[in-house]
Structures are given as C-alpha cells and as structure tokens.
Amino acid sequence: MPIHEKHLIRPENLIEHEKLVIDGVDVSGHWSTFIAPRVVTDYNEALQDEIAALPGGENIHRCWQCGSCTNACTVNAVNPDFNPRYWIYLIRMGMESELLRDKDIIWQCVSCNKCTYACPRDVVPEGVMKATAHWLELKGHTKPSPSTVFDEVFSDQVIETGLMEESRTVRGFFAGTGQALMQDWLLAMVRAMLVHLPVKWLMHLGLTTVFQPRTKNWSRARDAIKDYVAEQQAEQRKALGLSAQEH
C-alpha cells in the first residue's frame, strides 16, 4: 500500500518490493511497500546476566526505571538519544535487538558519575554503561572504542614494563585509532617547547624511545598481573558464552 509518512517508520522496518504479484494482481511500485511488525516476541533472559558479569554491571537488576540517571546525565543534555535509563531497561528485559540499535552511542559515556550519585537504588549506571560498551566490544558488535584503545595501550605498556612512557602511549593511541601522529596541536606544542631548547629533555625522550626503560625486577609482577588479567578475561568471555580466547 502507499505509505506517505515514511519518516515515522524505522527504515529497517520498511519493506519495499521492486516487483510483487499477490494472488495474480501486480502490485509493483507504489503499492508494494510494507511495514514489518515491531512486536517484541520474546525476552533474551541471558542478557542481564551477561552485563552483570562484567565489571560495573553488577547492580543492574536493581533498576526501577525512575530516570534519575538520564536526568542527571551530562551526555544526555547534549544528545537526547543517549539514555542510560532506557538501555538499562532493554538489558533487564532482554531486548537485545533494540539495544543494538544504539550501539554506536553507548560508548559515549564520559564517566562523570553524576548518575552514580543521583541513583536512588545504587545501580551505578556509569558502571553499567561501561559494562555495556565492553559487552558490545566483546560480542563484536562495535569496534573497540577510542577509550578502550587508550586503556589497552596504556595498561599493556604498564604491565609489560612497570612504567608509563608518554610518547609511547600517545603514539600507540594514535596508531590504534587510525589517527595521524602529526596532529596540529601536537606539532604546536612541540614547536612551543623547542623555542626553549630543552636539550636534556629531548635526549631523555630519544633514549627512552630507543631503550624502553623498565622497572627493576618487574618480571614476576608482570607475570602475575598477566595471569590475573587473562583469568578475568576468560571468566568474562565464558559468562558471555564466547570462546575462551580472543579471536
């Protein structure tokens, strides 16, 4: 049938046929547009448990949908589609397909934690957002977010060497997020510094880039931390029904 107000319908629910014959009647073109039903036909009961198995998501089942988190939310003030209350509900009820519609904005949480202090039930919505973003990445629904890339570059380095070396972190972050190393702001900063000719600092930078300093006797700590991280990751992947190793 002809549908005029198509903008009211989700694009993925609009079904159009180039050529269609029903009961011998040719209804091609204008008359062959259909709307897919938007009825929720089942709950995915695993979803809440999966989010709850990830760090930050533990208290999600407490939510009673008062909306304090969304009211308090910094990001919601800028983007009304960013709605923690709504996502918590979708997860609680297991409406996975609905949740996935918003997969590309959930990671935008800035972790200001205003929701954490507004929540009357101690759901810790900020933690739930973190867990949800994490879930989306683990399940392969989203690419690792820039903040995940940064976290990994940062923590991999600390775990490996026991130290944090800024230039390496910055380089790793830019590489991981596909950004050019020669950022305008970075060049401006370096140029401003060069005016003062910080010879000692530049030598230090050069040396650390080449030799990668380490904390003394770090290897035992490194191994223990690596084991622990591997154990945690395995547990989380298991809770999500994923294979033990990352692909």
């Binding site: 938007r38 009825v39 929720v40 036909t41 089942d42 709950y43 949908q65 709504y86 509900y89 979708l90 009820m93 409406m95 609905e98």
Partner: peptide
C-alpha cells in the same frame, strides 16, 4: 504494550 519502550509485546 511495554510502555517504557513503546512497543507491543507478545511473549510466551
């Protein structure tokens, strides 16, 4: 109708 997601439900 699940009023919080504004969607009809048909759940077993």
């Amino acid at each position: 109708e699940d009023t919080l997601v504004k969607r009809p439900i048909t759940i077993p």
